[in-house]
Design a protein around this nucleic acid. Structure first.
Lengths: 170, 170
DNA sequence: CAACCTAAACCGACCAGACGGTACAGTGTG
DNA sequence: CACACTGTACCGTCTGGTCGGTTTAGGTTG
């Protein structure tokens, strides 16, 4: 969808708070009316953004083979790594939503809640599993806010280590 | 400072994007003129918020004994835990700044960059150290956005585990 | 084939209110 | 007196949203 693409581009370039209907219209080449035809309100637009992110994430997870140990946790890792490769800043939706109306994050909360439940049930060592989840979240936000991360070689070893942590969860 | 307090209260209650000069004036009991007397622009206000957060963080770290191993990393952990206890949502400043103008995060980036450098230099096992840092960031954002975290007992065991991870870094 | 109709997709002018910021005369306090 | 405000009025711009109209694609009918 051209509209959501435009919204993400604005967020990436100027910050999540700069997503306005006018700006999205300009960026997408549509008129303001056209944008509001597709998303009848700004809330709808932002929740569309978030939804797109959740869907993309879900689809990525589903490409993984079915019977891996700690499958859900592995999915989280691969999804976040892939999002970083393709520099489609889908996570920008989180910031945009949080800034404009925290309630918009409810679907994300629900989905994440389920996933954490599954992840914790897949292992005996819940503390380690949760630490991996938190580290992945940290990774995502560090990317999102362009916070420093110790450089590429540290990042690479972090990813490797996270992978072995998951492998050793049994 | 009453003004920054008011700004944080608004952000916590209605979202970071709802911080406006009028709203802050109302919340703090000052007049709009009074707010703008203290912070000559909205950018100044937000960077004041961020600065308050960085200062509080720095002060917390300095209360730790000087000659601990991995002192800087420990400081990160204790600071983030203390912030959570006192439910002063200082980190709200990060969201507010990111939404309105990503450049405002530059001081945070600089400070974090230094700290990561120190943390990585304090240990041989840089991957683990960095994972702890990322997990702490994850923890902070999970609080900030009210994302689910597996419940109090998981959280408790996560904190314990993070502590032993630091202890074992040598 | 053309004339007609319909519905979806879109345009762009407009509106009311919010926003950041300015200006400035006054006020109480040390 | 200076300082730290208050209160109010104002300005230009931006914002979300409405609304009447236009374009386009695709039937249906004679």
């Amino acid at each position: 969808m051209r509209i959501l693409e435009a919204a993400r581009a604005i967020a990436a370039r100027e910050g999540a708070g700069k997503i306005t209907i006018d700006a999205v219209a300009r960026e997408s080449g549509l008129s303001k009316g056209g944008v509001l035809y597709n998303f009848p309100s700004k809330k709808a637009l932002l929740s569309g953004l978030l939804n797109q992110m959740l869907t993309a994430h879900r689809e990525l997870v589903e490409t993984l083979p079915q019977d891996l140990p700690s499958r859900c946790l592995r999915g989280q890792l691969e999804a976040i790594l892939k999002m970083r490769e393709a520099d489609v800043d889908l996570s920008m939706a989180i910031l945009a939503a949080a800034a404009s109306d925290p309630q918009l994050l409810d679907p994300l909360r629900a989905e994440l809640s389920e996933q954490i439940e599954v992840i914790l049930s897949e292992t005996q060592d819940r503390a380690t599993a949760m630490i991996v989840v938190l580290a992945l979240q940290g990774l995502r936000f560090q990317d999102l806010l362009a916070l420093p991360d110790g450089g590429p070689q540290v990042r690479k070893s972090v990813v490797e280590r996270l992978r072995t942590m998951i492998d050793e969860l049994e």
